[in-house]
Design a protein around this nucleic acid. Structure first.
Lengths: 192, 192
DNA sequence: ACCTGAACACCGTTCAAGT
DNA sequence: ACCTGAACACCGTTCAAGT
């Protein structure tokens, strides 16, 4: 009588993401996930390759949420649509952002978005190293944008930095508008 | 007879960074740092605000290494020099990159670089929200570039992603050349 | 003031035993 | 095959005691 599988990977994935969304990244442990699923801690190891595999499950879940309208347009509009789709997926799970920033993103879902973006960028006429540079620029911008707070320190800026202090008082536009504005500059540089 | 200070913050900082550089991020613990300094684990708490304060010490150490030549030139050349200086500081400490990506960078050293970059960008004629967007774009590109591997998955790319597969075989230019190429596109978009 | 060892409440993971 | 509890080797941090 071989033991039946008690859980499924999608089940782990959904529960793990829920824990991260609701209680933060540090609340996701082998033990907490197992408890939420009503099983023993060691059971998780039958579905996932250790803690790192569990974290990969979370980044996959986030990136697979990326969607965009696929109406045929010029390459800039399409690249924008895909980049915004990926950005929105990340922003929907702020607690997972440190994972997105530090883990390798090579799930099928992420690769599909990357392939679509690459296709759009190739229609700018680039190929080979130039295409690679353009692709890297846009993807780096997407992931880097996840960490918006980098630029805006939350502690008061010392007086010796007048330009930063002035920046701290300029009104913010909405996060997505800000993301689109930076992206538009990149696309201009790419020959928009 | 009040107890004398046994350690100094710069001493902690240098030792912590050395541990990260030589043994990786996971090797930096309160206990390992204390042992390297010949004192008890709890002593560290007299110099630093817990583990998070210790990590801040490391990011400060890395970012304070950023330098650049300050010869008067056009704003694009100056922005490039500063950005490359920051990029080099980060690349010199690859094991610290996850910390750089996820921790708030508000040490005086980082703010000084940011102020200089902002000054260069303001000479493009921008101010207010437009200056903010330009600044955010460049800083996001710098930090995002720390994670170069994002774009290039190390596992073989599945056949359903032909463009990514093709990209995986295009020759790499040197990392700094790649960084500069992307930055040049951004500066073109900013009206180079 | 600053230092320290012991103890506490956690981790991820190994191991041996169950079905 | 898959599940599980106990145990191991760690963490960061609290506490009480030293100087």
């Amino acid at each position: 009588m071989p033991a039946r599988k008690k859980l499924t990977r999608p089940q782990l994935q959904a529960t793990a993401l829920a824990i991260v969304d609701e209680q933060g990244l540090q609340a996701l442990t082998m033990r907490s996930l197992a408890a939420a699923l009503g099983s023993a801690a060691m059971t998780i190891y039958n579905y996932v390759d250790g803690k790192e595999g569990l974290e990969r499950l979370v980044t996959e879940a986030v990136m697979s949420e990326a969607t965009w309208d696929d109406v045929p347009t010029d390459w800039q509009a399409e690249a924008t649509a895909i980049a915004v789709g990926m950005w929105r997926a990340v922003q929907a799970h702020p607690n997972a952002i440190p994972l997105i920033l530090t883990r390798r993103l090579d799930s099928a879902a992420t690769l599909a978005s990357a392939e679509a973006l690459l296709d759009a960028l190739s229609r700018s006429g680039r190929s080979g190293p130039e295409l690679f540079t353009a692709f890297r620029l846009v993807t780096v911008y997407i992931s880097g944008s996840a960490q918006t707070e980098l630029a805006r320190p939350d502690a008061p800026v010392p007086d010796d930095f007048p330009r930063l202090a002035a920046l701290a008082t300029t009104p913010l536009s909405a996060p997505e508008a800000e993301f689109r504005a930076g992206l538009a500059i990149i696309l201009t540089g790419l020959g928009g």
